[in-house]
Structure formats: C-alpha cells, structure tokens
C-alpha cells in the first residue's frame, strides 16, 4: 500500500516535471520572431539585428533553460510531496527538523547555478557597454513627444524631428501604426554606429528591441550606446520611460541602408532624392499651385 503510493507520487511528479519543462522551454524559446518590430501574437524575443542582440539572445536562452528547469523541479517535487505525504497516505508525520547535509547542498547548488549564469551575463554586459571604434555618430534628443535626430559629424545635414504617423497616415504609407514615423533615423549597414541620447525636458528612453538597445534620455546628461546592423531594412522601437500623456505615441524608426545610399543621403544633406533645398522648392511650388 505504502509503496504503491510512493510509485504513484513518483510517476505523477516525473510526468509533471518533464511536461512542464518541455512546455516552459518550448514557450520560452520558440515562437515567431518579429523582424525589426513586434510580431502578431509573438511570445519570443524579436529577431537579432546586431551582434549585441545575438549575444543577448544567447544569454536569454541559457537563463531560460535554467529557470524553466528550476520551476519544473520545484513543481515535480511539490507534486511528489503532496501525493506521497498527504494525510491519508501518511497519517503519522515524522519529526525531522534538521539535516545539515541537505541544508548545505541547497545553499551550494544555487550558488553554482548562479555562477553559470553570471559568467556569460558579465561578458554580454561588457560587450554591450564598452563602445568600440565607431565610424558614424548620431544623436537622438527626446522631446515631449517626439525624437529629434542629428548627425554631429555632418554639419550640412540639418537635424530633423521624427513625429509619429497617425492611423490614416500609417495605413497610407503601408507602415505599422504606433511604430511608424514621418522621418526615420538613417544609418548605414555593417557599420558601427554610436548613438548619443539625451533629453530636453522629461525623461524618455531610446529603444530598439531588435538592436538590444534601451538607453534612457536624461536631461543634462548625454548617454551613449552603439550598434552595428547586419541587414538593410526598417527597425522599430517605442519610448520606454514614462514621459507624460503621449508616452505611447513617440515611436522610434531606424532605416538601415547600404553604405552607398547612406553616402548619397549625407551628400544630399539628409535626403534620398535630390537636395533638401530642391525638396523645399518643390513643396513650395506645389502649395503655391494648389489654390488654382
């Protein structure tokens, strides 16, 4: 009778532990990955676009394997205890209240697990935080409620304000609402880019998840971080430090282009087609023509 109960408890515990581990590891480590932005119904990290985000994903995966294991172990252990030592199966309780060996074990083993986590975490942290030699520098200034970008290395590129597109505008532009802006930050591909982040009033946070970047914009302080994107494309992020009423409505859009296109963009004073002056003239002509 007693042994039958133990076997039942063991089986249930093992099944629960294994099942929960498989489910947790599956849920934690699979699922569609958004490319450059969130994906519909996604439950995993966005696709890595930079080396920092690749390392970040590796550490996330490692930690997820470990913490899913801990949860599954505790769940299995609880199931075993709850079945094996329920009042009906074990009417006479033991009086054990000390066991030095096991107390030492459950102090030492977590320390070892934490060391396994700490080493790659430290490597990631220093890789992410130590800024390498960069070729391009951009500056992002948080304002209420938009981002202003400038290129300190290029005086003839005027700084510009990146405002969110409203629902109709983003539908017309074929871009995702609450991610899209009217003027993206333009950077070259396969180039190390330094980002200077600051704010002129409330705090904000310049965030691009697929770059593994979140850097607070603090008034009076210039924070810096860096990224190097592997592939051309558009990458989105959202302000991540509460900054007031339009906190949800000041997205970040980064357009990563080829080095040639970037050089042309800079040469044109911050425009892909024709110079800014020409653009301004054209809009001037159009508005002038409109009343007719």
């Amino acid at each position: 009778m007693r042994s039958k109960n133990t076997i039942l408890a063991l089986v249930v515990a093992l099944v629960l532990a294994v099942a929960s581990y498989v489910i947790l590891a599956f849920v934690g480590l699979s699922g569609e990955r958004g490319e450059g932005m969130a994906v519909r119904g996604g439950f995993y990290l966005q696709e890595a676009a930079t080396p920092v985000m690749e390392d970040l994903t590796t550490v996330y995966n490692l930690v997820t394997y470990i913490i899913a294991g801990i949860v599954a172990f505790v769940l299995g252990l609880m199931a075993y205890i709850m079945i094996r030592y329920r009042e009906k199966a074990n009417p006479v309780p033991s009086k054990t209240s000390h066991n030095t060996l096991i107390e030492v074990v459950w102090t030492i083993v977590p320390v070892l697990i934490l060391l396994v986590i700490a080493v790659p975490s430290m490597q990631l942290l220093y890789f992410q935080d130590r800024i390498p030699e960069t070729e391009v520098t951009v500056k992002a200034v948080g304002n209420t409620w938009n981002w202003e970008y400038s290129y300190p290395d290029h005086e003839d590129v005027d700084s510009f304000v990146s405002n969110p597109l409203d629902k109709t505008q983003s539908t017309d532009a074929g871009k995702p609402y609450l991610f899209a802006t009217d003027a993206a930050l333009v950077v070259p591909v396969n180039t190390k880019v330094k980002v200077l982040v600051t704010s002129v009033n409330n705090m904000h946070s310049w965030t691009v998840p697929s770059f593994g970047i979140k850097m607070d914009a603090v008034p009076g302080i210039i924070n810096e971080t860096w990224f190097e994107v592997y592939e051309e494309g558009t990458y989105y992020g959202q302000c991540s430090e509460i900054c007031g009423i339009k906190h949800y409505y000041m997205p970040i859009e980064v357009e990563v282009v080829s080095k040639e296109a970037y050089a042309a963009w800079i040469a044109n004073g911050g425009s892909f087609d024709g110079s800014v002056a020409e653009n301004n003239n054209m809009t001037g002509v159009q508005t002038a023509a409109a009343p007719k």
Binding site: G34, M37, A38, V39, R40, G41, G42, F43, Y44, L45, Q46, P176, Y177, L178, F179, T207, P209, G237, Q238, C239, S240, I242, H247, Y248, Y249
Partner: peptide, 18 residues
C-alpha cells in the same frame, strides 16, 4: 518578450492577442 513597453494606454495591434 515581444517588446511591449509598460504604461501604454494604446498599443500596436501586434500585441492584441495576449
């Protein structure tokens, strides 16, 4: 994990399901 920030009154529809 999908990237949704806190303290948002409105969010992109990618986050709608959860």
């Amino acid at each position: 994990l999908n990237g949704m920030p806190r303290r948002y009154v409105d969010y992109p529809e990618e986050f709608a399901i959860w």
